[in-house]
């Protein structure tokens, strides 16, 4: 298994606040890494540093052998990223937005057409394709964000709460999609839904107050609880007084 993402002693502080402290981990192809932790734990900040949106205070991020600070464009080309809240240009229609992403990702000819058709089909946004994004429901907006992230068939997918705001059926579809893509890609998702970790992730990492507290398989995580319960294990790890 080759390493897609290598993170070495990564830290980020905003003024006096240490959002991420000295985190190191690798992600290989074929892995789905679940990023867990309470709100404000530093999950999104870590993802933002991997995708090149935030600069680390110290430490390094390497994506496919490219350092994110030295060669940001190569890193950005190989990553598909769904930012927190799935931001998109509201005044655009879904179709023109995806065409814009296809332009920027340099997809052309039949490949472009095939990818657009395929993504619209798998994400199931064909019915809203001519609507402007600001008129869509939260679930559809999230799906447009997903479509944008996977359009260029990236090696590496980073998704900040991909199932937030989706109904149970849509959650199920997105999980299946992630599982289907997992074979060839390296995927990082952050989530608050612990059952999701068991359902789709091959590995889980728990961050709290910027520190890495757990790194292992979902089975190992469950074994941290004497009740055999993932919620209980999560609390054991993240609530220090217990």
């Amino acid at each position: 298994m080759s390493q897609a993402i290598k993170i070495k002693s990564l830290s980020k502080s905003f003024g006096a606040i240490d959002a991420v402290c000295n985190i190191s981990f690798d992600v290989g192809y074929g892995e789905v890494l679940g990023f867990l932790g309470p709100n404000g734990a530093g999950k999104s900040t870590t993802m933002k540093m991997i995708t090149g949106f935030l600069e680390p205070t110290s430490g390094t991020v390497e994506v496919n052998g490219h350092d994110v600070l030295e060669d940001p464009l190569s890193v950005k080309r190989s990553i598909g990223y769904l930012p927190e809240g799935a931001p998109a240009y509201g005044e655009m229609t879904v179709k023109s937005f995806l065409n814009f992403i296809a332009d920027i990702r340099e997809l052309s000819g039949s490949l472009r057409k095939n990818r657009l058709d395929e993504v619209i089909e798998t994400i199931n946004i064909g019915t809203v394709i001519d609507q402007s994004i600001e008129t869509l429901s939260k679930g559809y907006k999230r799906r447009v964000g997903l479509a944008q992230a996977i359009l260029h068939d990236p090696d590496i997918l980073i998704m900040d709460e991909p199932t937030d705001g989706l109904d149970p059926n849509q959650k199920h579809e997105v999980r299946n999609l992630i599982k289907k893509m997992a074979e060839k890609k390296a995927i990082i998702i952050s989530t608050h839904i612990l059952e999701e970790v068991d359902a789709v992730c091959s590995r889980a990492i728990i961050i709290s107050s910027g520190k890495l507290l757990f790194d292992g398989t979902p089975e190992q995580l469950i074994s941290k609880s004497d009740q055999g319960n993932i919620d209980h294990a999560f609390r054991n790890i993240t609530v220090p007084s217990k």
Binding site: G52, F53, I79, Y81, P83, G85, Y89, R105
Partner: peptide, 12 residues
């Protein structure tokens, strides 16, 4: 609108 995060993580 937060789209700056999208824009800044595209390869441009």
């Amino acid at each position: 609108s937060g789209t700056i995060e999208l824009l800044m993580t595209l390869p441009v």
